[in-house]
Amino acid sequence: MIGTILTALIAGTVIGILGKFLAPGGRDNIPLWLTVLCGVGGVFIGSYVYAAIFDCTNMNNCTNGVDWWRHLWQIVVAAILVVIAAGITGRKRA
C-alpha cells in the first residue's frame, strides 16, 4: 500500500513536470504541489484511457517491454490538466 502511494507520487512528479513542459505557453504559474497532483491525475487517467482505447485486458503493460505509448498518453493528459489548473488558479506572472 505504501509502495503504491510512493510510486504514484514519484511517477506523478515526473509526469507532472513533463506535462508542464509540454503545456503551451508559460505554465510556471502553478505551485509544485498542484503540478504533482496534475501528474498523478495524468498517470491514472492516461493509463485508463490508454487501456480502454487499445483494449488492454489489465492495467499492466500491453507490450512485453516498457510501454512508451502509455507514458506518452500520461504526459499528454498531465499537460491538459496543467493547462486547466493554470486557468482555474488564475495566478498571474509578475
Rank of each mutant, 00 (worst) to 15 (best):
L6M: 15
D67A: 00
I84A: 08
I2S: 11
F54H: 14
M1L: 15
N61C: 11
G90H: 11
L32H: 03
F44Q: 10
C62P: 01
G65E: 14
W33Y: 07
L72A: 14
G39E: 10
T89A: 05
L6S: 13
T13Q: 03
L9H: 03
I5S: 08
I2P: 06
G87W: 13
L34N: 02
L6Y: 12
T63Y: 12
Y50C: 06
T35C: 06
C62D: 05
L22N: 07
N60S: 13
L81H: 05
H71M: 13
A52L: 12
T13V: 08
L9Q: 02
T57H: 04
S47M: 12
L81A: 06
I5H: 07
G65L: 10
L22R: 11
V40P: 00
G16W: 07
Y50G: 03
P31N: 11
A94N: 15
V40S: 01
A78L: 01
A85C: 10
N58M: 07
R91F: 14
Y48F: 13
G26N: 15
V49L: 14
G16Q: 09
L6A: 14
Q74C: 00
G12E: 11
L22Q: 08
G65M: 07
M1H: 13
I88C: 09
W33E: 07
A23R: 06
K92F: 06
G25N: 10
T57N: 03
G19N: 10
V82I: 15
V40L: 03
C62Q: 09
I30E: 01
A52F: 09
G87H: 08
T89S: 08
F44W: 12
W68C: 04
P31A: 13
G19Q: 14
A52D: 03
V14G: 02
L9A: 14
